[in-house]
């Protein structure tokens, strides 16, 4: 564990809590992509099949937190506040995201066994899971401020992991190419959003995109 990884995990957890808080307090999931949130559940469940293999209390606790938090988000969006879900704006064709990730999992896992293939799938799937949400923001041309904070926390997390990977390469000689390449792609996807967030949301303005 190092400071970058801890900050990244905290940022990731904060993102999930922010989203649940937004949905619960506004009693609405307007502007949120159920497709992205469903992909995250798939990501966490496929990656954390090793949840019963003990690494540390922290590791197990965080895995449980991510699975339960993302599942609760999907539950609220798909059932409790379903009437507020803007299905017509959540129109990104997700199979174009899922199929290449399945292909990558079978073509380039570290080892050929079910757990490794699912782990590889989860890493690639996570890297592009935010696409439907960013697509929705682009399509409607706006995001509520708390949704922007959520996206910023979620985007920061993989960016901080890049610093963690640099640190681990230097200090521990540890390299995980699949995580690094997918993590860089994931972070790059947020660049446009980061720019808008810093130039608009931090200055107290709403995230309205130019038409």
């Amino acid at each position: 564990m190092n400071i970058f990884r801890l900050a990244a995990d905290i940022s990731h957890a904060v993102a999930i809590v922010l989203l649940l808080y937004k949905i619960w307090t506004s009693r609405s999931c307007a502007g949120l992509s159920l497709k992205s949130q469903s992909l995250y559940v798939a990501v966490f469940v496929s990656r954390y099949l090793d949840i019963f293999r003990f690494v540390s209390f922290y590791n197990t606790f965080m895995k449980l937190f991510f699975i339960i938090g993302s599942s609760a988000t999907v539950y609220l969006m798909a059932f409790k506040f379903k009437h507020t879900y803007q299905k017509e704006n959540d129109s990104f064709p997700v199979l174009y995201l899922i199929l290449p990730c399945i292909a990558m999992a079978f073509v380039l896992p570290y080892e050929y066994n079910p757990v490794e293939i699912l782990w590889t799938f989860s890493i690639w799937q996570e890297s592009v899971a935010i696409f439907p949400q960013l697509f929705m923001v682009q399509k409607t041309g706006e995001a509520e401020s708390i949704t922007s904070h959520y996206l910023f926390a979620l985007g920061s997390y993989r960016g901080l992991y890049i610093l963690n990977w640099i640190y681990r390469y230097v200090v521990e000689d540890h390299v995980d190419w699949i995580s690094i390449v997918a993590g860089v792609i994931q972070t790059v996807l947020y660049c446009d959003f980061f720019y808008l967030y810093i130039t608009r949301v931090i200055k107290g303005r709403k995230l309205d995109l130019p038409a």
Binding site: E111, E116, Y161, H174, D176, S179
Partner: peptide, 10 residues
């Protein structure tokens, strides 16, 4: 190593 045991990150 690249075995599953090295996937200690979240």
């Amino acid at each position: 190593g690249h075995s599953h045991d090295s996937h200690d990150e979240l």
